[in-house]
Design a protein around this nucleic acid. Sequence first.
DNA 1: GCAAGGTC
Length: 942
Amino acid sequence: MHLIVAEKNISAHRIAQILAGGTRVIEKKDAGVSTYSFGDTITVGLRGHVVEVDFEPGYENWRSEKYTPRSLIDAKTIKVPTEKRIVSLVQKLARHADRVTIATDFDTEGELIGKEAYELVRAVNKNVKIDRARFSAITAQEIGSAFANTTDLDFALAAAGEARQSIDLMWGASLTRFISLAAKRGGNNILSVGRVQSPTLSMIVDREKEIEKFVPEKYWQLGLLTEKAGEQIEARHTNGRFKDQKAAELARDRTKEPLVVTEVREGTKQDRSPSPFDTTTYIVAAARLGFSAANAMRIAEELYMNGYISYPRTDNTVYPASLDLNGVLATIRNSPFTKDVDWIISHRRAEPTRGKKSSTDHPPIYPTGVATREGIGDDAFRIYELVLRRFLATLAPDALWKTLKVNFEAGGETYTVTGGLLLEPGWHAVYPFSEAKETILPAFVTGEKLPIRKVNLEEKETLPPARYTQSKLIQRMEELGLGTKSTRHEVIARLVSRKYIEGNPLRPTLVGRVVTEALEQNADTITKPEMTQTIESHMQQIKESKRTRDDVIAESRSMLHKAFDQLEANEQVIGNDIRDRTAEELNLGRCPACGGTLAIKHMRGSTQFIGCSRYPECTFNIGLPVTQWGWAVRTDDICDKHHLHFVRLVRKGARPWDIGCPLCHHISSNAESLTEIPSMDEALLEKARSKHIYTVAEIARSEPDALAKSLDLPLEKAGKLKSEAGIVLEKLRRRSECRKFLRNHLIPRKGRSYAKIMEALGQSGVTDLASLAHATPATLQQAGIGETEARDLLTEARLTHNSQLLKGTGIPAVSLKKYLEAGVSGPEDFVSTGAEKLATLTGMSTGTINRHLALVCEYLHRPVPLAVPKAKLAKGRKELLSVKGLAATTADKLIGAGVISGDLLLAADTKKLAASTGIDEEKLRGYQALMKKKKENAIIRI
DNA sequence: GCAAGGTC
């Protein structure tokens, strides 16, 4: 069997179809992975890398004393399968193969992916012949010749890729851990560092700094308005920008009629057709249509998967010779753009345009199928049209412009105006996405005199450099060699998710800026694009076998060690600096109570709140929802009234929740509960707020004399207020417990909210778990709860309520659980069940149960029942001993567990009883059977 | 929990 391993499923499918010729290709799925077979050949697609490099086991703990961040530099690495199903399928097939062909993409990473497949195959089949097919496009011609002329895998090329992997991992992981630990950040807040992301972030930070330090300069622009043949024409002074206001004003004042035409220069200009799309130029063009980089890539991938366009991840801007351009034109003639295709067929240029970069892995992006707007939707269709029209444009003739430049003179000052006329639209006829703006001028003759309608002197200011848009940044990354066609847009998304950058155009956050500066000062290699360029040149040397992979990695290791010498020496300083400076980003403004600084605090776990910098002296705080509702951040907006930054909760995949001014929010959300305090009136409420008392809890917790002082109340009234607040607080606690219970036991459904249900229940007097437990199903149904749901909810509520009551008696949790499992529903039930029965049901000793019984009785204000009378005990023992084979020691064990009569033996759960007495369960069941017979006989005898 | 690179 001949096994062919491709880089991705779609390639495996198409290669099979091409190689099969006329024969039918059979697709089979094994654990979700497709294979394609014909004759004796079977193809399978990988999913890019199916294994990943990682450190050998032992380095998992970031805070390990022994395995420090630095130790990662020299840590051994291993390859871990990440696509287990694909790995096992490839190996399963490889066992029975007598030839394996690696048909991964034709580039460095493809060679490495091929080597990974090679190693998987070799691990299960030592002797099979493994060869390599190389092709630049999956066309019949390329595939045919690639498989007719297979070669060996290029291990040097793959080793170059491995060197990159190792270097990226050791620099990235060790520095990420070091910086994160130094700044005491973990979980969602780690500070990541990497060869590509750090220089990219640095560019954004640098641009922001340029903008900040930019000092605008004034300049003056001079222009005039003239008229010819009823048309107004604007001419610019040939000086362009005047730096000097006086000179500009002088030139303005000298500009006097007549305006004389001194020169008319006509010419033509060639406007070259654009080159084929690679990923970057495609993203830039899509950005002009309003698509973000990530969206543009997502849609392109979708179109590719459905056969409408070629592979969208490519660096190539030159069509390979093997690409059948006529075939493509014939295909897209059937698209909704027939007219444009026909125009190209009749006006086609001799050779298609070509860009500066050509590579071997994939052709430029071009249309491969026919799509309709109805079939694929608006956005996808716009992208399809863009790709199709770009393809047409690369085959279209150049455009030709007629240019006109007219020079004027007035009072010794020179002016000029230019015009352009599209003589031959060429590619513009089929590619409307880059505007061809014509400026049509009337005819002028040298020496002609014209009127001056107006002279304009405008004062302007130079502008700071613009922030990067995503597509501009991607272009810049490509120029610097940062990232690849497949990863650049992902790198930007990663920086956003690390909270290093934000907005569109992109701005650095304070964290992004501080981390960049820390790295620049202590490990600047990682912040410079040169690191990538060095790695690339080293990779080139490995490819040419001038250096080995290990040699290159070793050099990188020693560089990283040097960086760590400095980093470790300054760890404290770096950590404190990052912490101090990023704290600013959480500050909201002055504490209303004491004038300290209010800041968002994130605790371990999911708690977050707003607290004061003078804690514990100042305990002012504002609660925030737990992080499940979103991570609290401050925004740039500031409250007019309280002068605090607004707060927003941000959550992945959800719209942000804008809380606004935290104090306004705090006041309004507590207003209602404060008015529930009986002696609270408007005036008192105002007074409380002016003293920064906003919640019931604060009143309930204050000392009466302090309260009296701050609210100007007599001590007695303050005491009353406090105790009323305590009652309201308890009511609120119960209400929120009830709400939580409803939320946990009622499935969310459209059109009903828990708040609404709570309100309806409240009107029927149900405000807490206790009243809920005593409610009727009808009450619940009135609140909009379905019949069966109401019944289930009541059962649950009673259970929960009773177990709460039982817990209130002081029974420890472990025993409580056993009672509840045995079906004890509450304190009353506990007492009426009786100790003996409880012992048999739970397997606990009667001694313990009697102690608990005393607790429950005390709780119910009831006398504790006496222990079992001796006579009763003796009678029961005798009854137990009457069972054949039940020895005295066994009977005592049973009595110890509360089984003090034949009836209780019959009622006992043998499993629990066996566990508590140590008597074999089988035996217990035997005793039960005998006892049962005895009892039945007794009945008959009567 | 870490990188960057494939692919979905």
